[in-house]
Amino acid sequence: MYSIEVNNLTKKFGKFISVNNISFKVKEGEIFGFLGANGAGKSTTIRMLCGILAPTSGDAIVGGYSVLKHPDEVKLNIGYMSQRFSLYNDLTVEENINFFAGVYGLKGKLLDDRKKWVLKIANLNNKENLLTGSLPGGIKQRLALGTAVIHKPKIVFLDEPTSGVDPISRRGFWELINDLSESGTTVFVTTHYLEEAEFCNNIILIDAGKLIAEGNPKDLKTNYLLNDIIEVECDNAVKAMELLEKENFVEETSIFGNNLHLIVNNFYKDKTQIKLLLSDKNNIRVNRVDKIVPTLEDVFIHLLDNKTND
């Protein structure tokens, strides 16, 4: 069963095409990752799927309702955490929870239960009276997620929920997302942290409004990148990259932290080729050269590079 079916969805702002004819399906209860660089059109797509922005053409069925024809019904079935901050800084934790509970018309025992649940997942038990503005970023995001799903929607849209949050809090946040998905909620999440994509059941990648890859993380790695990836740990990675780019056995290069990743072709035989070039000819110390399993990042960089080369 699909929670979301997107068909040829397009959004134009004047002449500018922000979302360009994209189609995909999201299964019930899965974590669906929506990836793309800044300005790729992620937020625009999410806002159309939430029924707050009318598509220019195409349609999407979200929770059984068309966003084009029945945006109000769509809204009843979803939760949404916008990319911009979605809580009120000048209200206390409890006041924020009460407000969103009130907006969704919760009352009685359900209200009490949900309030407790939100406090628990945000690690804010006994801290109801703190001003929301004074909370650390990671906790704020957990609270925002809690209030976004306070009415137990079947589908929740999270727009870059972990941007600007430290790595440890991000890990914790993904555990929450996992819990939600396990309890049956469909989670549609955008991010530009590619390592987070590994936590998703399925992913799509968009660039400049166009869909350029889709599938589960494993398939993406094998289907979209057939060449080998070589990781090189050496001094002066920038210089090394410049040198390697000129070699006929190297297709693409990219820098990952202190390391270099090379996408190589059939001319690549073994690591001596690299060592010869770097340490023997150019005096760059090479610590390690390994063939690795491509990360999603390798795949995406490869896909995006090829697109710009077209």
């Binding site: 939430c50 809204k75 916008s82 911009r84 979605s86 009120y88 969704y104 018309g105």
Partner: peptide, 13 residues
């Protein structure tokens, strides 16, 4: 300005 209006728009308010 704060973007909280989005959150309200998407609720059934």
């Amino acid at each position: 300005e704060h973007g909280t209006i989005e959150q309200l728009n998407v609720s059934s308010v």
